[in-house]
Design a protein around this nucleic acid. Structure first.
Lengths: 249, 249
DNA sequence: CGGAGTTTTGACTGGAATCAACTGCGGTGG
DNA sequence: CCACCGCAGTTGATTCCAGTCAAAACTCCG
C-alpha cells in the first residue's frame, strides 16, 4: 500500500521567497510546507477558529500568534504563543482546540490535513518527528499546568520571560538578553492566569530590583538571567549540571 | 488517494477487564498488552519516576494512579490521574515527564517501548489510534490549563467531579451519580491548584447546598449533575447547539 | 494637538492560603 | 472491651496576595 507520490505531491510550484532555498526531499515536517504559498495574516486576524473543522495544518513563517480559548462568560485564556518555525493543527484530528490569532502582521503556509497526513504516512522519519512534535507540545502544556497550579505572580512572569528567551534564542551570549514581546500585557495576563495590573506591577518590581529593564513597550532586556532563573523556580528541570549561580547581591 | 476510513475504530470500551480473553490480532493499542503479564503495584508504589528513561509503556489494568511533579522547594503538582484502560508513557520518547504512583492497590502491564513502537509502526490503524490518544491527552491538559488559569475553587471542584463521572462512566442513568474518589483531599488539592483546606470547604459547601452528598471518605454522590455542570462553566465545551439561554432576571 | 488605546500606579477588597485546633475513624495492643 | 495513637479530614481565625475599581500617564496614531 505504498504510494510513491512524493513527486506528484510536490508539483512544480517554485519555492517563493522561502528562507530555506531548495527542498529536494521533505526531510523535516517544515519542509512539507516548502511548496505552499506564503499567506499574509494581518494583526488580529485569525488563522482559524476554535471548534472549526481541523482541515488544515499550518506552519508559521513570520510574526507571532496567540492561541485563545474563551469561556462562556467571557473569561479568556491564552493556551500558547506561536512563532516562526512552529507547526499548528497537526495534533488535532477533529476540531481545533482554540482560536489562533496574529499578534502582529504575520505570515504562514497551509497544507490540507489529508495531504499532511498522507506525507507523514509515507515517511518513517516524518512520523517520528510528528510524535516528537506532539510530545514537545505536551510537555509545554504540562509546564504551564505547573506554573498555573503552584507558582506566584513573580515566578510566573519570570518563567514566562525565560521561556521566551529559550524559544526565540538569545542572539549573543552576552549577560544581558533583549527579548521582543509581540503580545500585550493583557495577552500575557491571560496566558499566566493573572490580571493586566498584576503583570504590570511585577514588571516594574522586577525592573526596580534590576532584574530586567523595560526599554520599549514591546521589548524587555533581561539584565540578570540567573537571578531570574532562580525566581522562576524549577523552570523545566533540565538536569543541567552547570548550575553555577552568580550570587551578586 | 486512499485516505479515508481510518476513523472507523471507536475508541472506547469493548470487553475490558476480562481475564485474559483471546487476542487474535492487535486492533487496539490496549490489545498490544494482552500477552503481557499483569503486575501488581501496591498503594504508594511508583510505576516509574520523573526523568527516568522512558523505556517502557504501560497499560493500567486495575486501580488508579496519580502523575506527580515536584518543584525543588517541595511544592507538589498532580498533572493527572490514570484509570483502567489508560495507556501511559506512549507520548514521551525520551524521559517520563512525571512520577506515576498507585493511589490504591493496582494492576498494570508493561511493554518495552521499542516493542510498542515496532508494533505501532506495522499498523496504520494503531498509528492513527496513537495520534488520537496523544490528541486526547493534549486536550485534557488544555482543559486543565483553562481550569487553573481562570476558574475559582468551586468551579474547579465541580469540573473535577464531572470529569471523574465522565471518565469512570455513570453506571445507571439515574439523576444521582455515585463517584468513587480513590485519591485523598491532598491529591485533589495538588491537582486543582488549591489547598487541602479549600477543597474540604468547597465539598462541605456543595453538600450544604444539596449539590452533592459525601457518603464515605472516598465516595461522593452527585445529587444535582446539571446544577454542578452550571457551576463548572463551559466544562469542555461540546458544540451542543441546544444553547437556549434562560435570561432569568 | 488631540484622542483612543495601552500601561502604570494607587486605594481598597476579597478569596484562598496559612496557622491552628478539633473531630472522626481505623488499627493496635494492653 | 476500650484506651491510645496516628492519620485524614473538617472547621475556625487571621493573613496576604492578587483582584477590582479608579484615575493618571504614556504612546502611537492621525
Amino acid at each position: 500500500m505504498h504510494i510513491q507520490s512524493n513527486l506528484t505531491l510536490r508539483n512544480d510550484l517554485r519555492v517563493t521567497t522561502g528562507p530555506g532555498g531548495s527542498h529536494p526531499l521533505p526531510t523535516t515536517l517544515r519542509d512539507l510546507f516548502g511548496p505552499q504559498a506564503t499567506e499574509c495574516i494581518e494583526q488580529g486576524q485569525a488563522l482559524f477558529w476554535q471548534s472549526d473543522d481541523a482541515s488544515q495544518v499550518f506552519e508559521i513563517v513570520a510574526g507571532a500568534f496567540r492561541t485563545v480559548r474563551v469561556l462562556s462568560d467571557g473569561r479568556r485564556v491564552i493556551t500558547g504563543f506561536l512563532f516562526p518555525g512552529d507547526i499548528v493543527g497537526a495534533g488535532s484530528p477533529d476540531r481545533y482546540p482554540g482560536t489562533v490569532e496574529a499578534l502582529v502582521p504575520s505570515k504562514a503556509r497551509r497544507l490540507p490535513r489529508r495531504r499532511f497526513e498522507a506525507e507523514v504516512e509515507h515517511s518513517h522519519s516524518l512520523r517520528s518527528q510528528l510524535v516528537a512534535h506532539l510530545s514537545r507540545e505536551m510537555s509545554a502544556a504540562q509546564e504551564q499546568v505547573v506554573l498555573l497550579a503552584r507558582k506566584n505572580a513573580e515566578e510566573r512572569v519570570a518563567s514566562f520571560l525565560l521561556s521566551l528567551v529559550r524559544r526565540m534564542g538569545r542572539s549573543s551570549q552576552s549577560p544581558c538578553i533583549a527579548v521582543e514581546l509581540p503580545m500585550t500585557r493583557l495577552d500575557m495576563a491571560d496566558y499566566l492566569g493573572l490580571t493586566i495590573e498584576t503583570v504590570s506591577r511585577v514588571f516594574t518590581r522586577l525592573a526596580k530590583r534590576g532584574y530586567i529593564a523595560t526599554a520599549a513597550r514591546h521589548e524587555v532586556t533581561i539584565l540578570r538571567p540567573t537571578a531570574l532563573a532562580l525566581l522562576a523556580v524549577d523552570d523545566q528541570e533540565d538536569d543541567r549540571d552547570d548550575v553555577e549561580i552568580a550570587w551578586a547581591s
